[in-house]
């Protein structure tokens, strides 16, 4: 049990939640988005999800067997990684792709570092970035929504990157997910419903997701248009993986800062990086890279936002 959670400085609040219960609840909160993905893109999407999850569980089991660690494949964390990775894939990918991605996410993104609680980067995003670097052809081919003949279409963000104009698509379509995109990111309505459930249960706090979204929107509003303060920030929030990333991936307990202040810095950093990549970068979408970069910065943020231990002086000269 020692390695399961990073222990913050006291005072500790105790409650009866176990790690695996949290994982399963987060899993439940993702169900609406997955269901929406299946409705929009067809049963293909479901197959991709199942394969992603299965491969994640098998890899976790194999790696723990090899490293002679306790087998904990039922604690929900590998399940969640596989599911989140599948949510980050286009629905029409070849079926070995989610399997390969989950394998990499668990083996290299998590177990190599020592398992749950030890990983620096969000494993699901490590898997996605690996797939993006390895088979970009499949990762950038999207199927048309509500059309089961596997017609390909570009995502609104890709259209924006290629031609420089915002596609003629209504906010309502974007909100309901009638657009090309990854399985779990398209239906904003379902994602918001899941996120509200997590807020209500108290499993995520507002600090990371709200700062992330707000800073991102402000940045895009300021610099994303023809002149200052003319960017279409609402379009940018509704497209791409922003909501999925901000509410379900940036909030990962292991790879985000511990203190409230640190979380606000983390969210703001994610927001700025995402906006910079989307507006001026080489890729149309930057959520995964932004979160990974801030994951790397998390130890430093933690170091400078440490809570003062109750009853001690502020140390004058720390070694």
């Amino acid at each position: 049990m020692k390695n399961k959670l990073t222990v913050n400085i006291s005072p500790h609040l105790h409650n009866n939640e176990s790690v695996s219960k949290i994982m399963w609840i987060v899993g439940i909160s993702l169900i609406p988005a997955g269901a929406a993905g299946v409705i929009i893109f067809g049963l293909n999407a479901l197959t991709v999800m199942i394969l992603g999850i299965l491969s994640a569980l098998v890899t976790e089991w194999l790696m723990q067997l090899l490293a002679k660690r306790r087998i904990t494949i039922l604690d929900g964390s590998a399940f969640l990684t596989g599911l989140l990775l599948a949510y980050n894939l286009p629905p029409g990918v070849p079926l070995w792709l989610p399997a390969a991605g989950s394998f990499f996410a668990i083996a290299i993104g998590k177990q190599v570092f020592g398992g749950l609680g030890q990983n620096i980067f969000n494993p699901a995003l490590v898997g996605r970035v690996f797939l993006m670097a390895s088979w970009p052809k499949y990762m950038t081919t999207f199927t048309k929504p509500l059309n089961f003949d596997a017609v390909t279409s570009a995502t609104p963000l890709a259209v924006l990157r290629e031609s420089g104009v915002i596609e003629n698509i209504s906010y309502l379509d974007l909100f309901l997910g009638r657009r090309g995109g990854c399985i779990g990111e398209v239906c904003i309505l379902a994602l918001v419903a899941g996120a509200l459930f997590l807020f209500w249960k108290g499993y995520i706090s507002w600090h990371i997701p709200v700062t992330y979204t707000a800073v991102f929107a402000a940045f895009v509003y300021a610099f994303g248009g023809d002149g200052l303060f003319r960017g279409d920030w609402f379009f940018h929030i509704l497209t791409g993986g922003l909501i999925l990333g901000a509410f379900f991936m940036a909030t990962d307990y292991v790879t985000s800062p511990l203190t409230r202040k640190g979380q606000v810095i983390f969210g703001a950093g994610c927001g700025i990086l995402t906006a910079v990549i989307r507006l001026w970068g080489g890729y149309p979408e930057g959520v995964s890279y932004a979160i990974l970069m801030m994951n790397a910065a998390t130890p430093i943020i933690d170091r400078f936002t440490r809570n003062r231990i109750y009853g001690t002086m502020i140390p004058v000269n720390r070694k």
Binding site: I108, V112, F130, A133, S134, W135, P136
Partner: peptide, 22 residues
């Protein structure tokens, strides 16, 4: 098989070196 193009990039080299070091 579909070539895994990350192995052709410097990041892939780091990965391979890391795994071999293990």
């Amino acid at each position: 098989f579909e070539p895994v193009s990350i192995f052709g990039m410097p990041s892939g080299a780091l990965l391979v070196i890391g795994i071999l070091l293990i």
